[in-house]
Write a protein that binds this DNA or RNA. Structure first.
Length: 557
DNA sequence: AAGTGTTTAGCCGTGT
DNA sequence: ACACGGCTAAACACTT
């Protein structure tokens, strides 16, 4: 499934640095500055991310949309800040129920925002009883300690916090929030009273601004106060290349979204006009006033979703699906199509199927579990893999591993079974012949699925209900004392002992160099001289050097 | 010729 | 600094 991946340390790092960067410019006595200095941003952001992550996974299990598009913002906000479910909110009043903790310096009381409107002379700590809490104790204690009692009447209708933006899931996008507007040049969306209220709230210590807290807003404010955001956006597909190789901010945009933090003004502004459905994909409109915006998905994700939705597709059909769902990808633009083809070719997650019934090319599909080739695994939920992908991938990996193990065991069992079958016509067949076994195993494996070269074979016992056969197998193994003649890691192309012995001049008429016990052949030979590591190079070489004392022995050998 | 599939190379951003 | 993922560009071969 497709969705942005969660960022990890990088987010908190950027936020922390942003915190320093932004608030260095603020008045040291500013209430906002004081509160923010004591706020554990890392924990705060991490908590939000984890909360949304859990929620997203829950939604994946119940993919149906909970609310209509028009209610997405407020329901998402409600889910984030209130223990009340989004569905309940929609059914009841379409207004978020925000619980607040009233702190008057000595007492703490839980109440609702509606009740709060009637309260006077109280400091307000906005918090949540479930999914979100401003856990920094300092923020709650110091607000009442440092500031005189004041009145905070927060309109519930203002409760469309930008923070309700699910940083981790592209399912809901915040509308332009009045509280953010100070930093987004969106003042046109507010009337003068709202702007004045906003300004006063932020200046008098009203913590409701935290609901709309967005660090990047301050970043933008601090770094680019005079810059109008949209002008920063360059679309390399529109010919405005920012970098020599054609990469543009739009690429960063995709990464920013995927990593769950909105550090760029263009991202925020784009999303302000964007509505994401619960499944995160259908009919997504990345259009802006000045043109389509690059979707925050990799080509692999786009292709994957197209194939998941439609099954097998030709390359041209994949083009069509992508261009239909994402206006950014124009059907007449060949550059991204090249990337799509490139992805199809190099990504083992995609399988080239049969030839297309009409026209050139092949049908492409997602590699199913049985032929799911190795794919780079995300470690510790890295930013490149979505949770859904991780779940699917984990299942796939587990299934693949089990399947491979099962296949190997079957093959070994078959090979071992063939080894254990005595040939009544030739007693010598009871003795393991490594060359023959390797040939046999090679034939078996080649016949089963893939070309392999069996360089050596180590017989192994396989659980068998037939006790007698087991004993027979064990006896054979014990008799032959068959050992792996070399370590796999030592040689890319292992050389057999026979070759080594021959090249060392150890093989000549009248002598038998073998790792097998001649007594097992019925040969009566004197005690062998062990050729081991002490008298031959290679500690793994340990075969026995027999002197054949009779012509019959020589012939048998 | 156009579309398709493969391969190589380079750049960028991020994480270690 | 290095590895890696992702993206982009380009070249080339093959098929329709």
């Amino acid at each position: 499934m497709i969705g942005p991946s969660s960022g990890t340390g990088e987010v908190t790092e950027s936020r922390a640095s942003s915190k320093r960067k932004v608030f260095d410019d603020l008045d040291i006595d500013s209430p906002k500055r004081k509160i923010f200095d004591e706020l554990d941003i890392d924990s705060f952001c991490e908590e939000i991310r984890q909360t949304n992550r859990k929620r997203y996974l829950q939604e994946l299990e119940t993919p149906e949309e909970l609310v209509a598009t028009s209610n997405e913002i407020i329901t998402d906000a409600a889910t984030l800040f209130s223990p009340i479910s989004a569905q309940e909110i929609v059914e009841e009043s379409q207004v978020a129920h925000l619980e607040v903790l009233l702190v008057d310096g000595t007492n703490c009381t839980w109440t609702t925002m509606s009740e709060l409107e009637q309260q006077q002379n109280l400091d307000v700590l906005v918090t949540s009883s479930s999914s979100l809490s401003l856990s920094s104790s300092s923020s709650s204690s110091t607000t009442s300690d440092r500031h005189p009692p004041e009145t905070y009447a927060v309109e519930e209708t203002n409760y469309q916090p930008a923070m309700s933006m699910n940083y981790w899931q592209p399912g809901v996008v915040p509308a332009a929030s009045p509280a953010n507007s100070n930093f987004q040049q969106n003042k046109g969306t507010m009337n003068n009273n709202q702007q004045q209220q906003q300004f006063e709230d932020q200046e008098n210590g009203n913590l409701s601004w935290l609901l709309d807290f967005k660090l990047d807003s301050f970043i933008e404010a601090a770094d680019d106060r005079s810059t109008v955001g949209p002008t920063l956006i360059k679309d390399n597909h529109c010919g405005n290349k920012n970098k020599p190789n054609g990469r543009s901010h739009s690429s960063n945009y995709a990464n920013d979204i995927r990593r769950g933090h909105e550090n760029s003004s263009m991202y925020r502004q784009d999303l302000n006009q964007t509505t994401y459905p619960a499944n995160g994909f259908d009919n997504r409109n990345f259009s802006r006033s000045n043109g389509p915006k690059k979707p925050p998905f990799t080509y692999t994700e786009l292709i994957e979703h197209a194939l998941q939705e439609r099954g097998e597709l030709t390359v041209s059909a994949i083009y069509q699906w992508i261009s239909e769902h994402f206006p950014y990808y124009k059907s007449n633009d060949d550059r991204w199509k090249n990337s799509v083809r490139h992805n199809l070719s190099i990504n083992p997650h995609f399988r080239k199927g049969s030839k297309a019934p009409h026209g050139a090319g092949h049908l492409w599909a997602i590699a199913n579990r049985s032929d799911c080739r190795p794919r780079p695994l995300a470690i510790n939920g890295s930013a490149t893999t979505t949770p859904m992908q991780q779940v699917a991938q984990n299942e796939c990996d587990e299934s693949r591993s089990n399947k491979i193990i099962s296949e190997i065991m079957d093959e070994v069992e078959a090979a071992t079974a063939s080894i254990a079958q005595p040939n009544p016509e030739d007693d010598t067949d009871n003795i393991l012949n490594p060359v023959t076994l390797e040939d046999s195993a090679e034939q078996i494996l080649n016949g089963i699925k893939r070309e392999v070269e069996v360089q050596y074979l180590v017989p192994m016992m396989v659980a068998n209900s037939d006790h007698e056969a087991n004993q027979q197998n064990q006896q054979i193994v014990q008799q032959t004392e068959f050992q792996c003649p070399f370590k796999e890691s030592d040689f890319l192309n292992p050389v057999s002992k026979e070759v080594v012995a021959e090249e060392c001049g150890l093989v000549s008429e009248g002598y038998l160099v073998t790792d097998l016990n001649p007594n097992a052949f019925g040969l009566n030979v004197i005690d062998p001289e062990i050729i081991g590591s002490e008298n031959l190079f290679g500690e793994e070489l340990s075969f026995q050097f027999y002197e054949l004392t009779s012509p019959s022995q020589l012939q048998s050998a």
